[in-house]
Design a protein around this nucleic acid. Sequence first.
DNA 1: TGAACATTTGGCCAATTGGCCAAATGCGTG
DNA 2: CACGCATTTGGCCAATTGGCCAAATGTTCA
Lengths: 115, 115
Amino acid sequence: MRASSIPVDAKTLNRMAAQARVLKALAHPTRLFIVDQLSRHEICVCELTDLIGADISTVSKHLSVLRSAGVLTDERRGAQVFYRLRTDAVRPVLAGAREIVQSFAREQVELAKAG
Amino acid sequence: MRASSIPVDAKTLNRMAAQARVLKALAHPTRLFIVDQLSRHEICVCELTDLIGADISTVSKHLSVLRSAGVLTDERRGAQVFYRLRTDAVRPVLAGAREIVQSFAREQVELAKAG
DNA sequence: TGAACATTTGGCCAATTGGCCAAATGCGTG
DNA sequence: CACGCATTTGGCCAATTGGCCAAATGTTCA
């Protein structure tokens, strides 16, 4: 017989939802690329648009998602708007995701050899 | 005049897509809750289902997403299947997301005070 | 103020996702 | 083998998302 478990409380679920929102903001190739670039130095919308090659409005919406999730901040300087990381707490998320992918790839290779 | 930027190469985009897939797997309240629980100790599907209170098939599909993204591994022991983190690299992702949410909340409070 | 540039917002459509139910599969025991 | 329990898979539907275009907004400068 299995131990019966008490269901999650609403508070925990809310915390999970808040954190999931942050991760969701990062969980898109274009948005992750943006954040990766901004982890090096701030960049304006127009230059990001050049880098990405999508419609400016698309890039702007991605930036809006990242900003309202608390990942990025923006600062207007003249006609341009520059974006940068809002907090260094973003870095371990990027690094972790990178490492998960790498170690998973290595593991798959091992399994293939063994296979 | 702005510096013109060279568009991203396909290789970088592929890397971003791979990492985004991992983050996407984590970017769901229920799945994040599962991973958070498993960051403490391994748990079987049936107990996770108790904890979450959703349909077993729903939980199983969430676990499948996390497993095929390289976040979790599973091990069958008798009739039960136990899941656990596949790598410790998952931890900094969780911690980072938590801290982003916290610092953003603090910042919002400050802004509200400042009016 | 009007032209030119930078950015955001609204609207629309195709594609993806998350949930449940039902059915299939895997494993241990009598 | 047949039953019971644990888990996965298939099918279906409602809701969300990401992309582009068009239009609105903000800023500089003549």
